[in-house]
């Protein structure tokens, strides 16, 4: 990713807004943008979703491959999650090998989904030691106006929830629904002008400091955490955003369940 210029004026403006308990797009400190989720949107994918949060738009697509199980886990299939942010998504994203930013995005989303145990990897085994399903979740950004993390995580779990294992095409039985037993939800908080805000937009990311990502499972169990970018935060600050994440993740889970 090209390092964009961070205008001092933008940083000063964001700091002033924060002091007055305001945000650059008029939202409250913990208010998220409207979330739109559409599923089964990609005809060639076995599961798919499109998520829109403000001007951030992403797709997630699930594909399946047959793999040889790892020798230390002969009864398990696999899950692979990768994020691609190509130049289509914004003027600062460049073509070329995956950038550290997109690798971090893919890995943090991957950990939240994997560690929640929402996918039964034992059920992905076809013949122990010989054949198993590999689930591949590809995350693809179309428009980056901030907080790709939450958009990717949400599109990812939504796509997995409607994925169908293409067993007929691979001649190993009949097609069946992948089945996702849990719904991990990621909530991201950015330090903007000396305080954390939820669901930063592009300008807040550009003129902000560190960010914290929290993935919570159905029963508020913590499945992944990540602190990114330069910045210092306190236990009090973290405790507050953890509480906010518990509230917000329930709301997002309700949106998903209502689809």
């Amino acid at each position: 990713m090209a390092i964009p210029l961070v205008p001092k004026l933008l940083r000063a403006h964001l700091a002033e807004l924060a002091e007055n308990d305001a945000r650059i797009d008029g939202r409250q400190q913990w208010e998220g943008r409207d979330v739109e989720i559409e599923t089964s949107v990609l005809p060639r994918a076995e599961g798919s979703a499109r998520v829109r949060m403000g001007d951030t738009i992403v797709f997630a697509g699930v594909k399946f491959q047959i793999m040889k199980p790892y020798s230390d886990r002969p009864n398990q299939g696999g899950l692979m999650c990768s994020a691609e942010i190509r130049p289509v998504a914004g003027r600062n994203w460049e073509s070329g090998p995956p950038s550290p930013e997109s690798i971090e995005l893919g890995r943090v989303v991957d950990r939240g989904i994997r560690e929640s145990g929402c996918i039964d990897v034992d059920a992905l085994c076809i013949i122990p030691g010989e054949k198993a399903w590999q689930v591949i979740l590809d995350l693809f950004a179309i428009s980056d106006d901030g907080n790709l993390f939450d958009a990717f995580a949400l599109a990812g779990i939504a796509a997995l929830r409607n994925a169908v294992v293409p067993a007929e095409r691979f001649e190993v039985g009949e097609d069946y629904s992948l089945g996702v037993s849990k719904t991990p939800i990621m909530c991201s908080y950015h330090k903007v002008g000396d305080r954390f805000v939820y669901d930063a937009c592009g300008r807040e990311e550009l003129g902000g400091d560190e960010r914290i990502h929290i993935t919570l499972g159905d029963d508020d169990h913590v499945h992944s955490l990540q602190k990114g970018l330069k910045g210092i935060f306190s236990t009090e600050e973290f405790t507050e955003i953890m509480g906010r994440a518990q509230e917000r993740s329930k709301e997002i889970r309700d949106i998903l369940d209502s689809l």
Binding site: F59, G61, Q65, S82, P97, I136
Partner: peptide, 17 residues
């Protein structure tokens, strides 16, 4: 100009790049 196929755009997954 960059033409690219997303990994989920084809029946068999397209390797990125």
């Amino acid at each position: 100009v960059a033409y690219n196929m997303a990994p989920f755009s084809t029946t068999d997954r397209m390797r990125p790049g």
